[in-house]
């Protein structure tokens, strides 16, 4: 069923873009094929204003409290959090691996920067993901054009600033075509 497009309520503070939250969890023992990925991902809902964002976010479990192999995705409304989406096909992502205990704070700082348009890269941002794993957690931010080095450099520099990470934190850029081939 087609989801209703979100609109800001009266007196609320509109965002530059509407966004949708998604949640996915890997079923143990299943291969990670495209089909099973798509069937394991659920849209939580969409929002158009700062206040609507908080209404969702305040009721969501913090990434650091998730167990098992799970992900939260926050993407612009209309973009699926998948490589195959037209907005992502030519794109890539910055990946930051986090030791356990940092995911909740880093995820919040990352999505607040995205919602508040702190990256200053025009239409380039597609969405962000936090992936909870056994040994470590991973946050990533996806953009449309992997070949645009000025954009990817600006995203990296903004990430460093808004996440306030230790200077030795490793940041890795991966194009989605690399991920597909891998």
């Amino acid at each position: 069923a087609k989801k209703k497009i979100a609109v800001p309520g009266v007196g609320e503070h509109p965002l530059q873009y509407n966004y949708s939250f998604w949640y996915s969890r890997r079923t143990p023992g299943r291969p990670a094929s495209t089909q099973s990925y798509e069937s394991n991902i659920r849209q939580i809902g969409s929002f158009a204003s700062v206040e609507q964002f908080w209404r969702f976010y305040s009721h969501m479990i913090r990434p650091g409290d998730l167990t098992g192999h799970s992900d939260f995705h926050l993407f612009k409304e209309g973009i699926k959090p998948m490589w195959e989406d037209d907005a992502n096909k030519q794109g890539g992502k910055w990946i930051i691996r986090l030791r356990k205990g940092l995911a909740s704070r880093c995820w919040e700082n990352l999505i607040l920067a995205m919602l508040g348009e702190q990256f200053m890269v025009g239409e380039e941002i597609c969405g962000a993901v936090v992936s909870v794993r056994f040994q470590e957690d991973i946050i990533s931010i996806w953009n449309k054009t992997a070949s645009d080095q000025a954009t990817t450099a600006r995203i990296r520099d903004t990430l460093r600033r808004v996440l306030n990470l230790p200077p030795n934190t490793i940041m890795e850029y991966k194009t989605h075509t690399d991920s597909i081939n891998f």
């Binding site: 609320e12 700062v50 206040e51 964002f53 700082n109 607040l112 919602l115 508040g116 702190q118």
Partner: peptide
Amino acid sequence: GTRIIYDRKFLLDRRNSPIAQ
């Protein structure tokens, strides 16, 4: 056009505004 830019503090301050409850 004009972009709608919010800093972290502005967003956090809206968290407990009556309209968000």
